[in-house]
Design a protein around this nucleic acid. Structure first.
Length: 427
RNA sequence: GGAGAGGUGGCUGAGUGGUCGAAAGCGGCGGUCUUGAAAACCGUUGAGGGGUAACCCUCCCAGGGUUCGAAUCCCUGCCUCUCCGCCA
C-alpha cells in the first residue's frame, strides 16, 4: 500500500507517478470518498466525545449518590445516533481501504519508462554463450532422450504444466538447491528458514498478491469452505510475513533470510505461453532471498542482493544478462526490479531466471513491519526486498542446454560435482 | 478425537462494570554519580488516526451482544498452552 498521507496531500504528483507504470487512479472517486470520510469521521468523533463525557458524569453522579435516571435518558438517544454514524464511517473506511489495496507501488525515479518487457533496459551481460559444432537441442529433447524427464507421466498424475524428473537429473535438481542454499548461508550471510507452504489470505494481502491477483493462486478447500488457505506462489510470501506486526531493533538490520520452497502458480493468464518443457509449470522449486532493510540502505541492498543471485549463475558457468525492468513491467508491489536472464541455447534467447525487487515500504505498510528508529524513539516502516537466487527448474533447464554435448549427454558443472558424488556427466 | 487453562504495551505480567490506555518488573531513552564504564538512584517511555491548533477519537486476539458506561459480563470464531488418546 502506498502512503495514504501522500495520496491525500500530493494527489496530483502521485497520480502522475502511477501513470508512469500504466496505472490510472480514479482521482474523482478517491477524492469524493476522502471528503466523505473526513466529514463523517469528525462527526463521529464529536458524538463519541459527547458520549464519553456524559457517561463519565453519570459515573461521578452515581458515586456521589445522586439520582442518575434523567442523565441516562439523554445519553441513550445519543447512542442511537452514534451507532448510525459509526456504521457509515466504517463503510467509507472499508471502501477507502479496498481502493488503496488495489493501487500498485510507485516506481522509483531510476526505473526506466516503458510499456512492456520490450522497453526493459540491459544493464550488463556476463559470460560467453557456448558455441556448438552441432545443432543444440532444447531441454525437452535432451531430457526425454535420456529418459530422465517425463511430462506425460505428470499429466497422467495431475494434468498439464507438471513434470516428473528421474535419476541423475532429479539428483542434479536437488544438488542445485543444496548448492544455492549453502552459497547464500556460508558466503552471503543469510539465515536459512523453513516455512509453511500453505498460507492464509492475510499473508497474501501483506505481500500484495491479494486482493488483486487471486486468479494466479491455488486456493485450498477445507470443510467445504474455500478462500481461507492458499498454496504459496513464492517463498517471498511466508518469509516476508515473518516480519508482520514485528518491531525490529535498528541493530538487527538488515535481516537476511534464504529459503527453499516449492512454488505453486495457476498461470491462469498464460494459456498457450511456454507450453513446451519446464519453463512455465504449476509447481516449481525456488531458492528465495528476502531482506528487511533500513530505508536508507534498501537501494544499496538491492544491488547487493542482485549480485548474490548473479553469483549463482557465475559459479554454475551460465551466461546471463541483467535487465532493469521498465515502469510498465515491474510487479505490483515493487518500486524497482532487476531481472536476471539466462541464455538458453535451445531457444536462442535470454529467459528470466531471477527477479530482484525493492518494495520499499509498500509491503511493510500492509504488514505493519517496522523497526524502532532510535533518533525518534518511534516505530518506522521497514523496506522489504526479495529476489530469486534462483528459480531451480529454470536453472536446471539452463544447465541442460548449455552443458550438452553432441551425444546428447549433459555435463555436470564443476561446482555441483561434489553434491553428486563426483559425477561429471549425465548420460 | 476427549478434558482443562489462557490470549493485556517492545517483553514479562497485574487488573472482573465508572478519570484504566491500563499497576509492577524488565528493556529503551535522559540525568546524577564516575577519568570512563558498570552498579545504584532520579526522571521519562504504547500504537494508530483526526484537527492550523488547543485538543479529540480509536485500540487490552477478532467479530457480534448486554449497558448511560466494557480490558472487565454474554455469544461466536481464531490462536496458544497443559493432560489423555491417536499418529509421521
Amino acid at each position: 500500500m502506498i502512503d495514504p498521507h501522500r495520496l491525500r496531500n500530493e494527489l496530483e504528483e502521485t497520480v502522475r507517478q502511477l501513470e508512469r507504470r500504466g496505472y490510472r487512479l480514479d482521482k474523482k472517486h478517491f477524492q469524493a470518498l476522502e471528503l466523505k470520510r473526513k466529514e463523517v469521521q469528525v462527526q463521529t468523533q464529536q458524538l463519541q466525545q459527547d458520549r464519553n463525557v456524559r457517561s463519565k458524569a453519570i459515573g461521578q453522579a452515581k458515586a456521589a449518590g445522586e439520582d442518575i435516571t434523567p442523565l441516562k435518558g439523554a445519553v441513550s438517544e445519543l447512542g442511537d445516533k452514534l451507532k448510525v454514524t459509526e456504521t457509515r464511517l466504517e463503510e467509507i473506511q472499508q471502501a477507502l481501504q479496498d481502493t488503496m489495496l488495489e493501487i500498485p507501488n510507485i516506481p522509483h525515479e531510476s526505473v526506466p519508462d516503458g510499456r512492456d518487457e520490450n522497453d526493459n533496459v540491459e544493464i550488463r551481460v556476463f559470460g560467453d554463450k557456448p558455441v556448438f559444432e552441432f545443432e543444440p537441442k532444447d531441454h525437452v529433447d535432451l531430457g526425454e532422450g535420456l529418459k530422465l524427464l517425463d511430462f506425460e507421466a505428470a499429466a497422467k498424475l495431475t494434468g498439464s504444466r507438471f513434470m516428473t524428473i528421474q535419476g541423475a537429473l532429479a539428483r542434479m535438481h536437488r544438488a542445485l538447491i543444496q548448492f544455492m542454499l549453502d552459497l547464500h548461508v556460508r558466503e552471503h550471510g543469510y539465515l536459512e528458514v523453513y516455512v509453511p507452504y500453505i498460507v492464509n489470505a492475510e499473508s497474501l494481502q501483506g505481500t500484495g498478491q491479494l486482493p488483486k491477483f487471486s486468479e494466479d493462486l491455488f486456493a485450498l478447500q477445507r470443510d467445504g469452505r474455500c478462500d481461507e488457505f492458499y498454496l504459496i506462489p513464492t517463498a517471498e510470501v511466508p518469509v516476508t510475513n515473518l516480519l508482520r506486526d514485528e518491531i525490529l531493533d535498528e541493530g538487527d538490520l538488515p535481516l537476511k533470510f534464504v529459503c527453499h520452497a516449492p512454488c505453486f502458480r495457476s498461470e491462469a493468464g498464460s494459456y498457450g505461453k511456454d507450453t513446451r518443457g519446464m519453463i512455465r509449470q504449476h509447481q516449481f522449486e525456488k531458492v528465495e532471498l528476502v531482506q528487511a532493510a533500513h530505508p536508507e540502505q534498501s537501494y544499496e541492498i538491492l544491488e547487493e542482493m542482485t549480485r548474490h543471485a548473479e553469483t549463482v549463475l557465475k559459479r554454475l558457468g551460465l551466461p546471463y544478462r541483467v535487465v532493469a525492468l521498465c515502469t510498465g513491467d515491474i510487479g505490483f508491489s515493487a518500486a524497482k526490479t532487476y531481472d536476471l536472464e539466462v541464455w538458453l541455447p535451445g531457444q536462442q534467447k535470454y529467459r528470466e531466471i531471477s527477479s530482484c525487487s525493492n518494495c520499499e515500504d509498500f509491503q511493510a505498510r500492509r504488514l505493519q513491519a517496522r523497526w524502532r528508529n532510535p533518533d525518534t524513539g518511534k516505530p518506522q516502516l521497514l523496506h522489504t526486498l526479495n529476489g530469486s537466487a534462483l528459480a531451480v527448474g529454470r536453472t536446471l533447464v539452463a544447465i541442460m542446454e548449455n552443458y550438452q554435448d553432441g551425444n546428447g549427454r549433459i555435463h555436470v558443472p564443476p561446482v555441483l560435482q561434489s553434491y553428486m558424488d563426483g559425477m561429471t556427466v549425465i548420460e
